[in-house]
Design a protein around this nucleic acid. Sequence first.
DNA 1: TTTATTATTGAAAATGGTTTTCATTTGCAA
DNA 2: TTGCAAATGAAAACCATTTTCAATAATAAA
Lengths: 154, 154
Amino acid sequence: MRGRGPWWHDRFQEYGWRITPSREIIMDVLHNTKEHINASDIYIKAHAMNPAIGLTTVYRTLEMLEKTGMVQKFDFGDGMARYELINNPGAKDHHHHLICMNCKRIIDYTEFIDDEIDFIEKTQSKLSKKYNFKIAGHMINFYGLCEQCSKAMA
Amino acid sequence: MRGRGPWWHDRFQEYGWRITPSREIIMDVLHNTKEHINASDIYIKAHAMNPAIGLTTVYRTLEMLEKTGMVQKFDFGDGMARYELINNPGAKDHHHHLICMNCKRIIDYTEFIDDEIDFIEKTQSKLSKKYNFKIAGHMINFYGLCEQCSKAMA
DNA sequence: TTTATTATTGAAAATGGTTTTCATTTGCAA
DNA sequence: TTGCAAATGAAAACCATTTTCAATAATAAA
Ligand SMILES: [Mn+2]
Ligand SMILES: [Mn+2]
Ligand SMILES: [Zn+2]
Ligand SMILES: [Zn+2]
């Protein structure tokens, strides 16, 4: 019988990964986190649920999730990587980012995403042909000043 | 009389920066580098021209150039930042990137950039309004497998 | 030109996110 | 139940980048 346990158990089994308490909790944290969270914050939340968990395991689990495309890793340039579940039930829809160069705030936006995806797909197929490059995903970031910061500077 | 010395002397003076041998060489390296180069490689090239230069100064100069928008800093997620001169005579035109997830190769492309910029500008003005966000620039990356890597995997 | 001010410098040490090592534990197939 | 490779956490190592600090040098002022 299928469907027992969280949705990701099947995925783990597909990949031959063991289902361990640490991994259960890390998945739980990722699943219940709205924003792009960093390893240290995942560790803090996970550790609160079970102090036996180590930061090392957080990193190891994230790496494994990233390599199979269950998680997307972001490098916004503020010194630490951030992670988001993708292509999974319960994951945020695909979105792009506005990044404040002053306070480092990151805004997710999905407003015009359909138009963007449309456009991206066209570009993508042109690029694939021209460079024989197999495109699996993309990342679009806008950099600038958020409302608060531009007010503060006025 | 204007126009003496390299183009960036004026810019430095505008900002009140002193023109030093180290900075001359670092600008020279940036100017003569086609790809997105990292700090360490800049240091190696600069050091070859003048062994008195220190890596610290490379970092400091890059930070200063980045903050005034003469250089764009990229974080492609491979553990070190990369830099490119922008908005300057002799700088590469604005372009976007294809990043191989396997070998980390980075391909600059400018082919369809005009259409992209067009599109980006529209999105940008919509986003600015919606989020009161002052957009200064953007970054578009496609992730996937380069020709060599996808052949190697076949 | 000389001088005074202060930005800039490089070496060395510190920082901090991430990875590696390694001895121990544990999931799970048989 | 057992056997064993996979997984674990603590501690150490790694390594790109930043900070510290005393010495030096670019430039404005005299
Ligand atoms: Mn996001
Ligand atoms: Mn480039
Ligand atoms: Zn801000
Ligand atoms: Zn490749």
